[in-house]
Design a protein around this nucleic acid. Structure first.
Length: 201
DNA sequence: GTACTGATACTCT
DNA sequence: GAGTATCAGTACT
């Protein structure tokens, strides 16, 4: 699959500066682009989750502006990367106005460009297993804590989200309760592309 | 095919 | 010191 990144548009701050669930829904079908050691890795976002703040017990920002959650209060369009379960990094995009906490967890992408590099980073031969989960995704894309606070809207940073010009309103996006959490399960804040093999289980 | 377990280190109380 | 926005491997059916 050939994709010319020059023809794509970088998502701007205004895209992220609104309700977190709206951003989560609209990020489905967008293109995550990673520049790494001169190589380009890219994938279509097929699964996201929305995390709010004080009224969302599953959110890191629920207990206020702690050291870790501080970035969720920051500028929209910033990458929030954090470490979990002793081994895995998670990639989020900060949403809402500054000083309003919110972030979208990017849970899974469908690999498009640089799959060879991703296979090297992941110990699997199955392309469906390359980035079909938040921990797998960051591993395949070489994302770690150094990417925390990166500006996703800046062309100069090596981590961006582009508009892939896929008609997102035509996509069949389903919602469900969020995964892997114990509190706040009742809301359908997980969004994913229906019938897509690269969504996590 | 599904179910259960252990690995592992960081953040917050 | 406890809990965690997970994954891969093993042990089942």
């Amino acid at each position: 699959m050939n994709v010319d990144l020059d023809k794509k548009h970088l998502l701007e701050v205004d895209f992220y500066r609104r309700d977190t669930a709206v951003v989560a829904r609209l990020l489905i079908g967008k293109l995550l682009v990673r520049r790494l050691e001169g190589k380009i890795l890219s994938g279509i976002i097929v699964e996201t989750e929305a995390y709010y703040g004080f009224d969302d017990p599953a959110s890191h920002a629920f207990s206020g502006m702690t050291k870790r959650a501080k970035i969720m209060f920051g500028r929209p369009g910033t990458a929030y990367v954090y470490f979990c379960y002793g081994m895995y990094y998670m990639l989020n995009a900060v949403t809402e106005e500054e000083n309003t906490p919110g972030a979208v967890l990017i849970r899974a992408v469908q690999p498009v460009i640089g799959t060879e590099e991703m296979f090297k980073r992941r110990k699997t031969k199955d392309i469906k297993n390359l980035a079909s989960g938040p921990g797998k995704l960051t591993s395949a894309f070489g994302i770690d804590i150094n990417d925390n606070g990166r500006d996703l809207t800046d062309k100069g940073s090596n981590l961006n989200i582009y508009d892939a010009f896929i008609k997102t309103d035509k996509l069949e996006v389903a919602s469900s309760p969020r995964i892997g959490i114990t509190a706040g399960v009742e809301k359908n804040l997980r969004f994913y592309l229906l019938y897509n093999d690269y969504v996590s289980k």
